[in-house]
């Protein structure tokens, strides 16, 4: 039982990660692929934040009379990673817009067909 409780968060992370992974490799629509990447990314965030959690610990803001805090380091890493994530997502979306302008489609199959003829 304790095994299930102790590892439950990681399993959630894996389920989310695999959902994102599936979206990336199985769908042909480019926007959906980006969403898949984002779900994958969020699952990694959850993994880090789960690792940072200390049972009975407070949020990492110093306070009188509190001894046990959550680990601040993963919080820092993930906080910046989220912002970097949106910046790279924006770049990906910008690429999609340009792909649409060049090929007239955001479906991978259509793009491949057109790429083959040129």
């Amino acid at each position: 039982m304790s095994v299930v409780l102790g590892l439950f968060n990681y399993w959630i992370v894996i389920a989310l990660m695999m959902t994102g992974f599936y979206l990336v490799i199985a769908t042909s629509n480019l926007i959906k692929k980006i969403i898949g990447l984002n779900i994958f990314q969020t699952s990694v965030f959850i993994l880090y934040i789960s690792i940072a959690k200390v049972k009975g610990g407070a949020a990492p803001i110093l306070e009188e009379g509190t001894e046990l805090y959550a680990n601040p380091l993963p919080h820092v890493l993930i906080l910046t990673a989220i912002v970097v994530g949106i910046a790279t997502t924006a770049l990906g979306l910008a690429l999609i817009v340009r792909i649409k302008e060049a090929y007239g489609s955001i479906e991978e199959d259509d793009i491949r067909e057109k790429g083959g003829t040129t």
């Binding site: 940072a52 959690k53 407070a58 959550a70 919080h75 993930i78 906080l79 989220i82 912002v83």
Partner: peptide, 12 residues
């Protein structure tokens, strides 16, 4: 994230 004591991350 808020539940896991990471308010900064939750805000972001």
């Amino acid at each position: 994230f808020l539940n896991l004591n990471a308010p900064d991350v939750a805000l972001t």
